[in-house]
Design a protein around this nucleic acid. Structure first.
Lengths: 340, 340
DNA sequence: TTGAAAGCGATACCAG
DNA sequence: CTGGTATCGCTTTCAA
């Protein structure tokens, strides 16, 4: 824990010069800079965090609020936390965790104690309690996800409607006239903010393209995930030549397994596209086309916006949608294989 | 962001009195204290974090290092992060996230910048790179998990050996003479620190009790988790009258499903005990006896030790083992049902 | 029981 | 291009 004056002494300069040299906030002669950097390195010097917060006007910390809900999908959640942390570090920012009940109390606490420069909100619910709070506190806040009432808020998310539309377009372009949609369990459409958007986008674009679309929202439990299997069977036997999946990874695997059990080949007999997945769909057997939800994309944008706000820049209080991207892995083809 | 002098003015006292009243570090007349607390509440005052770090000698922050390894079991990991955060908040401490590559660089950074008062290490590998680092930095560090080389370190963990022994004792006491052990996939025994301890404890106690013990470490993939099913089948058909499980939740479910498929009732035909699970085993069909790994227990102890170290107290540099607890849910019985 | 004032260790303004 | 120094907001002696 060397201090700045030790570095100054070692380099034979004043402490202000050390500060400027290390922050790069004013020009320093090459020679002086070199001596300072060397001294800093040898002493393993880093500015004291507390002093820096106090003297400078930033903490270099973002608070990350995440209510670990019981129904939170852990792997996806971890991916977002990790992506946020990595994105923040690019700007030399650290992440402070705010969990559970603490989500609200914590935001207040962090705001009034100046512990963080901004707040990133994860795992957003449609009627999220953190919405009101965000409007009240005077701290830059970015939602990663879109609550129902998002007026005046800065939100970041994948354009799920467009993602679904992309999937429908792909299938419609190939000639499919009837597609089946396997979604999350019904409760997800109330507790989470994005499943409804996927469904809406899908059904809307299907209607536009004159494609028949049947939606099933199977429970994700039961022995061998029977509901998912039944959904797949019903859809395929009902005439769907393509399946769009928006569900967890296990349900994906089960759906593929059921197709195999039914003797339907992918993509010859049935085309399959995954929408909004945070997991790798290319490692399924067979690999599945995907319009993924990429955590790093959302989190990087969120952090960038938060940084801009911290720097006093203008950031529109609006939903910042991320354009979806179609990733082909060979699971789609024109309809008409065996069932031709 | 009210400041201390505003509170002092509002309460008609000096700032030092406000500081003392709020920290409780010296006695204040009841009346004065009341006025100060009221003023603080009305102004929503909280000490500025940076100023507090600088003037006081603590940051009120613990760094939590967690390398989000690819093979990390997300739900368990989340449970530990959450438990750590909750435990820390009891002491008015916040959690700063240190991830990935940053695990090592971050520890160094946090130590030399005085960003945290201590470090909590999660997801410990047998040959963890953070071990050497922990010895080098001058920051109280507590490992939640036990690396192979833990000399001079403060570690906290469930006594897995004792947990296994508890399971064996239960079964041996009931009269079982041959038990099967279904463990994690083989690679887990290298990448993670506790599976070997479970296995060791199990086999040792089985030997002591004169109970035959067959170990199988099935892969946790394949269609319908065939390896797990095969393991269960082989063990049961090989004469095991009881199964001890130390694997993920899905494998538990699959194992039970396979027993049902084999026509073996639990516990009449086969007894089943789960060891070291972080998930709820009482909601399986049927509910399963468990000697669980309780995240809150480990994390609370870790935080308590870290706090004691921060406060300058004595904490033995040793492995602090948590005594396991047997939770009966009706999945064990004397052997001799159908197979009499 | 209370108050005045000396730091804590940086940043950034004002000079030179 | 470099230095002196006021300042950030609190904690904690030292005095009364």
């Amino acid at each position: 824990m060397a201090k700045i004056h030790e570095v100054a002494a070692a380099a034979g300069v004043s402490i202000s010069t050390v500060s400027y040299a290390l922050s790069g906030k004013r020009s320093i002669s090459p020679d002086t800079r070199r001596r300072i950097e060397e001294a800093a390195r040898e002493l393993d010097y880093r500015p004291n965090a507390g002093a820096r917060m106090l003297a400078g006007r930033r903490t270099q910390i973002f608070a990350l609020t995440e209510p670990f809900r019981a129904d939170t999908h852990a792997p996806a959640h971890m991916a977002f936390v990790l992506a946020t942390s990595i994105a923040a570090r690019r700007y030399e920012y650290d992440i402070l965790l705010l969990t559970e009940e603490e989500a609200s109390a914590g935001m207040r606490r962090v705001a009034s104690s100046g512990l963080a420069d901004g707040v990133l909100v994860l795992d957003v619910a449609p009627d999220d309690e953190r919405v009101d709070l965000a409007r009240r506190i005077a701290l830059p806040t970015v939602f990663i996800g879109v609550p129902d009432d998002h007026e005046g808020l800065v939100c970041v998310d994948l354009d799920f409607e467009a993602a679904s539309a992309l999937a429908v377009d792909r299938l419609a372009d190939l000639g499919h006239r009837s597609i089946g949609f396997v979604g999350h369990p019904p409760t997800s459409y109330e507790k989470s903010n994005f499943p409804p958007r996927v469904r809406r986008g899908l059904e809307a674009r299907a209607a536009e393209r004159g494609v028949a679309c049947t939606t099933v929202l199977p429970e994700s439990d039961g022995p061998r995930r029977a509901p998912v299997r039944a959904a797949v069977r019903d859809l395929v036997e009902g005439g769907a030549t393509a399946l769009v999946l928006h569900c967890d990874d296990t349900s994906h695997a089960v759906a593929l397994d059921e197709l195999a059990a039914l003797g339907r080949r992918v993509p010859q007999d049935v085309s399959v596209v995954s929408v909004g997945a945070t997991f790798e769909t290319s490692s399924f057997q067979p690999p599945i086309d995907s319009v993924p939800l990429v955590p790093s994309a959302s989190c990087e944008l969120a952090v960038e916006l938060a940084m801009r706000m911290v720097d006093g820049g203008e950031v529109p209080a609006a939903v910042h949608l991320i354009a979806p991207e179609y990733r082909a892995h060979g699971s789609t083809a024109p309809p008409g294989g065996a069932s031709g």
